[in-house]
Design a binder for these strands. Structure first.
Lengths: 328, 328
DNA sequence: CGAATTCATGAAATCGTTTTCATAATCAGA
DNA sequence: TCTGATTATGAAAACGATTTCATGAATTCG
């Protein structure tokens, strides 16, 4: 492996000048620039990035936290982020927290040990106080999830509004017995707010909710199957169900279909996210502008890294959209 | 930021001893070990990974190439790889090539500039000769895709067998007019072999194929819609269609359903991958053992990095499985 | 008991860059 | 022509770890 020293020797110049050429500093004559470029080419030289990182104290790498990359919502988020990051000369390190507090904390070391310039969180398992101390090591940006105590920029949607929008739609369609089937993840603000919005819509319409119409821990298609099974065994069944994701909605729809139920006549279903799956299953759903969330979060991050200033609290709140299909 | 020097001073010892404690070298008395540990704690010291990388000449980071992370096949692959890598103390850098030759080549710099210890390719756009020169910078492992000229380990499935298996199944069900709807990506060996296996099955059964029953560039649900539209406008329509992915199959199934067709009576459909989507849409499909592919590829990579020996050609070929559902 | 190991530590070299500082040479303005 | 800025270059000091080499002390062995 050729080093900058080798190039310098070959070109008959100093390391400094070579470095200047590499980094496009001014004050290098065309003549020397040519010499250096040629020497670099002949030696097949490439700057060693570890050395550069050490000296520059920056890594041009950003860590992105997701629970699991196979969740389409998060893979979409990551796809856009990676694209945006690459465009700006940054790499992405993928951190799957698997909904585990400890996993999430482990990855924090990346920031502390200077392996990444910053952290983007798309989900939050731990209390914000766990993150707080790491802010001195580099910027953190929150997106999708949010926390009132987080003193960093957050790009998110007002999930109260989102679930209100979806629930209101069900109510407007005339349903009065409405089930609620979501992950209801304890540490998630998104979960909490969704529930608030849901209840708020019911409340405004003067509609009652029954304890047995809540179905929790539903994340996947499989969970949707299970939820339907429970639902179908109730004496007093809901006429419609609000879900936390298109996967769950799709699972319920499929199970209902297999059981000979008609959607929406026997059971109306509303999904969340508007993924390709929703179009496929003809599910009404609440759309989240994933592309925009991802881009904005990444932009804030790169800005923060380059400004080298600590980030302050800042909220970017984006709007939802209802996509009406035949499941409601 | 505290450095190793600060710790050494605080503990009244040399950098060397501190380093020994950090790296668990033998030959340090318990007494000094305690002193160092305490000093590290008090100073909130963490080793700087850039410095460590520079000295050690390794990064504990692996780059994974995928076309797009939103493709469920690849996100599944990456999920398992990340898990496996984390378990072994490695990080993953995500590289989305977006099916572009140039993007793919750009990411090669990561290896050359020593930002990663190795490369795992799950898709290949460029000719192998483009990768060849980079082998001197670190190990490369191919998985899913494969190339005869690649002198590195490859973990893959014999796609000729896979599509043969699926096509044979359609033939066994009595279909004689069979369409073929895949990506048919030019640079992909997978694509080529799938077609070979398909034609082979037809050939063995003495079945004729019509040019108009080939539908190419189909990757997504959306593409499935389009393919069905074309198919349905033919005078002589196929009775069954072999597809390259569950998404495409699902798209066709949905479009067919919307058009009032019955599956499989009016059109039989077989997918590929056995993703959650396939269960949802009740699609017969050819299953690929994604978990195993991912794990094996990652193991080979870590082994290669740690052995520090150049990798030689080696093939790990895994088996397919047919999942029969109601779409055929 | 002397020689050969093994254990324990530190000084200094090293990894490959970028940055600071110093020094000339050139140029512009009075 | 002198002064002060601008341009062009290199020597040497960082960046923060690990590793080599040297050296003594303690232990084992014949």
């Amino acid at each position: 492996m050729a080093t900058i020293q080798d190039v310098a020797k070959k070109a008959g110049l100093s390391r400094t000048t070579v470095s200047r050429v590499i980094n496009e500093h001014p004050y290098v004559t065309e003549e020397k620039k040519r010499l250096v470029t040629q020497a670099m080419q002949e030696l097949n030289y490439v700057p060693n990035s570890s050395a550069r990182r050490l000296r520059r104290q920056q890594t041009e790498t950003i860590a992105v936290y997701v629970p699991r990359i196979t969740n389409p919502f998060f893979s979409h988020l990551v796809e856009v982020m990676e694209k945006e990051a690459a465009r700006k000369g940054y790499q992405l390190i993928l951190c799957q927290t698997r909904y585990k507090k400890e996993q999430e904390r482990n990855f924090l070391e990346l920031l502390k040990t200077k392996q990444v310039d910053g952290l983007i969180l798309t989900s939050i398992e731990n209390d914000w106080s766990e993150f707080e101390p790491y802010l001195s090591f580099g910027p953190i940006v929150v997106c999708n999830e949010y926390s009132d105590s987080a003193q960093v920029p957050s790009v998110y949607l007002n999930q109260i509004e989102g679930s209100y929008l979806g629930t209101k739609h069900l109510i407007d369609q005339g349903y009065t017995k409405i089930g609620y089937c979501t992950g209801n993840h304890k540490s998630s603000r998104v979960s909490k707010d969704r529930k608030i919005g849901f209840l708020q819509a019911l409340d405004e319409a003067g509609i009652m909710m029954k304890e047995e119409w809540f179905f929790y821990n539903a994340y996947s298609v499989q969970d949707g199957f299970a939820a339907f099974k429970k639902l179908s065994e109730l004496d007093d069944k809901p006429q419609a169900v609000f879900t936390g994701s298109d996967e769950v909605a799709a699972g319920i729809a499929k199970a209902a279909f297999d059981a000979g139920w008609k959607v929406p006549e026997d059971l109306a279903i509303i999904g969340f996210d508007n993924q390709p799956l929703a179009a496929l299953m003809d599910l009404t759903t609440v759309e989240q502008p994933i592309d925009t969330i991802a881009k904005q979060a990444m932009n804030l991050m790169v800005e923060a890294i380059q400004a080298k200033k600590p980030l302050s609290r800042k909220e970017v709140i984006l709007p939802f959209q209802l996509i009406k299909r035949s499941s409601t």
